[in-house]
Design a protein around this nucleic acid. Structure first.
Lengths: 211, 211
DNA sequence: GTATGTGAAGCACTTCACAGCT
DNA sequence: AGCTGTGAAGTGCTTCACATAC
């Protein structure tokens, strides 16, 4: 058991994976699971699962395993997923529209409630049913809409400026789709979605590769 | 300097980031850079950059720094990015079509040359200018088209089956957009693009958060 | 008998710090 | 004088292994 800041970030990143697997098991009618079994499914060692969970409490029963239903509840609470989060999308080009239209966020409790762009020709139009606001109204709109998460889908050249602006407006969690390294102050969490980087690192293994 | 298998995967994952930053610098007319300066730009320690590069050779000049032009060439070679890679997309639903239409792959040397789906109603139609083939012809088509990379954009329920099939056909590099954990044999590299997982881990920090 | 929770050990990546080159 | 390349030291995550609980 530990205070928030003690938990390694790698651990936090694994919890949603555990949660997803457990939710799926539950919907298949499984009620109890051991760290061994869950580990096989996720390709993780049982010790790692037990250690990860131990940062937050003692959720298992020795000799039996974990009650999936109970563990799901606890993980959802730990990750603050036992509530709906409102999300703003910045950039409504091709990518931004795809993000707004993607049903996978909504179904997991992330509700995209407003969209922004800096192009005045787009402002006032609709994108996926959402009114497009100008970036100059960002702070005002996200406060009204109670948004605490921003998704950035602008060209690489604009990404840092947009991140600066959303941080200035008080946003602490950013999902960045722009293919560029970015910087944010301490206490702001930015994660990148960058399929090109992922491909570019894997081609390394095709280099000589008969492995 | 070391053999391929000795280089930690984390190092390989950083190289494309270095490459991207260096390419950008070069196009801005910068010719030489120190590990210190590059580190500042990428939020990485200079020692880490030097150590990472040292796995592959000695590319710098003591007292001066690195010739960006030279380093870009070497990194592109190390990562096997000094060639074009043909890519297959499996799944031409909404997401698959967005991937096919995304210009960011093409511009980095990843050419999407064929598309597959298991829905017979889609087979024979076009998606983003590409003929949609049935999965039953996967091996035949990728061999003809010289494809060694697959992008999987099918529903979670089908992802493992599709990955099994593409691996069976000889694919060693997979970019998986399906929101589900997957397994592949040793020697096959699968990376996941999973924005929902990224958001779900960041909400942890919004839990108590005035940090 | 079976599986958790956890200190301790192990391992791997990161950072230091300095010799060596320009 | 400045900056790389790199063994050595440091750090932090992972795995072990066993006492403990059911």
């Amino acid at each position: 058991m530990a205070a928030s800041q003690d938990v390694p970030e790698v651990v936090i990143e694994r919890l949603p994976q555990y949660l997803r697997a457990l939710t799926s098991l539950l919907s298949n009618g499984v009620e109890v699971i051991s760290s061994q079994q869950l580990g096989e499914q996720l390709q993780v060692t049982p010790a790692q699962i037990r250690k990860d969970l131990s940062y937050f409490g003692r959720f298992g029963k020795q000799g039996r395993g974990y009650s999936i239903r109970h563990l799901v509840d606890r993980l959802r609470h730990i990750l603050a997923l036992d509530q709906t989060w409102n999300v703003a999308v910045v950039g409504v080009g091709r990518l931004g529209r795809a993000i707004i239209g993607y049903p996978g966020f909504q179904s997991e409790g992330f509700r995209i409630v407003c969209a922004f762009d800096s192009d005045p020709r787009l402002v006032g139009q609709l994108a996926g049913g959402l009114m497009i606001h100008h970036m100059s109204h960002f702070k005002e709109v996200i406060e009204r809409e109670q948004v605490r998460i921003a998704i950035v889908a602008v060209p690489a050249t604009h990404a840092q400026g947009v991140i600066d602006a959303v941080v200035e407006a008080g946003i602490k969690v950013v999902l960045n789709y722009a293919p560029t390294p970015t910087h944010a102050p301490r206490g702001v969490h930015v994660r990148a979605v960058d399929p090109v980087l992922a491909l570019q690192s894997m081609t390394y293994y095709l280099r000589n590769a008969r492995d």
